[in-house]
């Protein structure tokens, strides 16, 4: 048994899997850094009440002393920012991430819009962009639930105390929202840990690709099946660490109800 762990084969496989896992980690953290703030922006967008046609239509109706008809009502209710954001969330959440990765990586080149940098760097870049957009959309819905879950009375209490909208968000809503979203966010982040493996669909050399390569022979050794299954340990350890950290955050926010 011990001989197996000290064998050169094991050492080769381990260092290959490690370098693959490093890419997995890279993708994981870049996605979080990009998607957490972008998701908040999208959530604000999908709650936006901006209706640019409301004023002119009301003005027109008043001037002509007319009651609003069907078309007027539609124009008044037209909220472009909300519409665009919700449409985007629908499309991104409604299609497979694999498809989004493939499309983002190949279509720009086929359509001659632009080319990703060649090699591993370009693949990494395309995958990161796809992951950030995809996860931002999922996060945005979690944020929206968190913000809308804070009772209206909290905002009103801030308003009557003369606070600005941004002060109310930063000093009152934000922490209460974070407390509410930690459990659903944890779910999503654990899913992200494992979703990073989808990047292998465009041959990004992350840990699953590396494990598989020992079966196919891309790494000089062929016919080994155990490295592929050995990758599970990486995911288990990593999602364990993430679970513990998020649990700590939850405990930290337990000082209020």
């Amino acid at each position: 048994m011990l001989e197996f762990f000290t064998s050169t084969t094991f050492q080769t496989v381990l260092s290959a899997l490690n370098s693959g896992f490093l890419k997995t980690l890279q993708l994981f953290f870049i996605t979080l850094i990009g998607a957490l703030p972008l998701g908040l922006i999208i959530s604000f967008g999908s709650m936006s009440r901006l209706a640019p046609l409301s004023r002119p239509v009301h003005w027109y109706l008043r001037r002509n002393k007319r009651e609003p008809g069907k078309i007027a009502k539609l124009l008044i209710a037209f909220q472009p920012i909300r519409l665009v954001c919700r449409l985007m969330v629908w499309i991104i959440r409604g299609t497979p991430l694999v498809l989004q990765i493939i499309a983002l990586f190949y279509v720009p080149g086929i359509q001659k819009w632009f080319n990703w940098p060649s090699g591993e760097a370009g693949r990494m870049m395309a995958v990161c962009v796809a992951f950030i957009i995809n996860y931002a959309c999922y996060f945005s819905e979690i944020y929206r639930g968190g913000i809308q879950g804070v009772p209206t009375g909290q905002r009103e209490a801030g308003q009557v105390l003369g606070m600005t909208k941004s002060q109310i968000f930063r000093h009152i809503t934000l922490v209460q929202m974070i407390k509410r979203i930690v459990p659903p966010m944890s779910n999503e982040i654990i899913t992200l840990v494992k979703d990073t493996s989808l990047a292998r669909v465009i041959a990004l050399q992350e840990v699953i690709w590396m494990g598989e390569s020992f079966m196919k022979g891309n790494s000089g050794i062929a016919g080994l099946t155990w490295p592929l299954f050995f990758t599970a340990i990486y995911y288990l350890v990593f999602s364990g660490v993430v679970t513990v950290l998020l649990g700590k955050l939850e405990q930290k926010l337990a000082f209020f109800q």
Binding site: P151, G153, Q154, E156, A157, V160, I172, V175, Q176, K179, F255, F256, Q257
Partner: peptide
């Protein structure tokens, strides 16, 4: 100044 029926204190 306003005092609400449901207090609306900031819990955090």
């Amino acid at each position: 100044g306003m005092v609400f029926q449901s207090f609306n204190l900031f819990p955090q």
